[in-house]
Design a protein around this nucleic acid. Sequence first.
RNA 1: GGGGGAUUACGCUAACCUGGUAGACUACCAGCUUUGGGAGCUGGCCAUCCGUGUUCAAAUCACGGAUCCCCCA
Length: 488
Amino acid sequence: MAGKSDKREERQEGITVKKSENFSEWYTQVVAKAELADYGPVQGTSAFMPNSYAIWERIQEVFNKMIFETGHRNAYFPMLIPESFLTKEKEHLEGFSPEVFWVTHSGDNKLGERLVIRPTSETMIYSFYSKWVRSWRDLPLLLNQWCNILRAEIKSTKPFIRGSEFLWQEGHTVHATKEEADKEVMMILEFYRKLSEDYLAVPLLVGKKSESEKFAGALYTTTIEAMMPDGKAVQAGTSHNLGQNFSKPFDIKFLDKDSKLQYAWTTSWGIATRLIGALIMIHGDDRGAIIPPRIAPIKAVIVPIYKTGEEKEVLAKAREIKSALATAGISVILDDRDDRTPGWKFNDHEMKGIPVRIEIGPRDVKEGKAVMVRRDTLEKKSVSMQAISASVADLLEDIQKNLFAKAKAALDASITITDDYGQFRQTIENKGGFVLSGWCGGQACEAKIKEETGATIRVIPFESKDVRQKCVYCGKKAEQNAYFARAY
RNA sequence: GGGGGAUUACGCUAACCUGGUAGACUACCAGCUUUGGGAGCUGGCCAUCCGUGUUCAAAUCACGGAUCCCCCA
C-alpha cells in the first residue's frame, strides 16, 4: 500500500493531499483533477466543465419538475439594468452596489446612464411585472429564470463556492396577499430542502435569517444552510418574502375583487452552482469526488479487462451489461479505450466520482458474472449477469442513503450547544461548525460576536421549542435560539 | 478586512542567489509490445504570467499589474 501511494505522489497524478490534512488544497485539486472547473482569465471566473455542468443540468431537471408541478414557468429577462432601477429600493441598493459591475460605454460612446450587469434581477423583472399585473386575475404570477449573474468578488474566491460570476435560478413571484406570499416562500424552501437532502445528499439546517443577514430589501429571508468538513457554513439557498418593499417603488398594483387598487406582495428565491461545491466538499474523499447517485449524470461505468485475444468476448459481454442497464434507466458509460490500462481507468473514474464501477474480465465471463464496485466504500462484490440491473439499482440507492447518513452524522456532530461565551469563542476558533446559543435578538450583540469571532447568525430555527435562558453575548433573557458559524 | 508566499511545457519541477546554451520526470502525438489497481521500449511535440525599466544581453535585477495558494480576522 505504501509503495503504491508513493508511486502516486511521484507521478503527481491523483489527489496528492489528504482531505483531513489540508482541506483547501484538497478541494482545489479535486476540482481541477476531476475536471469540474478551470480558472478563467478574470478574477473569480471559471469554466464549468462538462463534468460539473452535467450536475447542474440534473439539478435543473429535478428543480424544474418541482416548480412546474406547482404552476411556475421559466422565462428570461435582460441582463443589463439601468442604474436608476437599482436605486429605487434603498436597502437593496446599499446591499448590492459595492459588488456590481458597471457598464459605462456602448461601443465608443459613453452612456448617459450607467448600467449594471445583474447581480440579481428583482429590479429588472419588477419593471416588467408592473406592466403585466393589472387585475387579481393575473395573480399569482409565478416565474423563474435560469441565468448567470455577476457580483464582484475581490478576495477569497473558490471555484463554485464563491466567484464573480455564477449560474443560478431566481424565482420571482407576485401574490395578492401576504399569506399567499408566505406560503410560496415556505413551499420553495421545502423544495430546496428536498433537492439538497434527497438528491445531493447534503443535510441542512433550515430556518430564518436575522435582520442583518437577510436579503437586501426583504421583509424576511428563509434559508437552507449546510456545513462543510472544515467547519465553515455554506448558505445553500434562500427564499425571501419581499413584502410590498418592491411592489411600491416598482408600482406593481392590481384591482382586487372589490375593485380596489392594491399593491401586490412579491417573493424571490434562488439556488446557485455553489451547491456543486458543497456536495464535492461534503462527499469527496482522498481519492477524489463522490457524486451522489440520484444527482450523478453518469451512474455507472463499465471497465472491461482483457489480454490480447480476449477482447472480443469481453467487450461483447460489456456491451450486454451496458444495454441491460440502459434499458433499466441507469445512465452508464462503457470505457472501452484501449490505450488505457484497467488500473488507470479505476483511478480516473474514482477521481471523477462515478458512483458505481462494473469490472468485467475473462474470469467473470466464464462464470457469467461481473464485479460491482461502490465508490463510497470501494467495496467489491461479484454479481450474476442476469441480476446486474437490479443489483446496480439497489447499490445506487444504498450509496445514496449511506452518503446522506454519513453527512448527516457529520452535521449533527458539528453542532455545539452553549450559552457560555468563552466556550462559544473557543469552539468557533478551534473546531468550527455550528454553535447553537440563546440570543437576545439585539443587533448589537450579533455585530459584536461577528467582530470578535468572525461568526455570524446562519440560521434562526422556525420553532424554538426550548429557548435557552440567556443571550450568549449579553447574558440578558434570550428571545430565540440561533445557529452561529463562520461562513464561506 | 489584514498579512505571507508563489507563478517556467497539461502537471510537478531544474536553472535565479552570482544576468549569457531554458534541462528532467509526467502528460500529449506516432509505432510496436502490454492490460484483474495509474504498463514498457523507441522516436517526436510543447514553456519562462503580463507590462515597463536597467543592460551589449533578463526566466534571473527593479517597479507596476494579473492570477493562484496559505495563515489570521
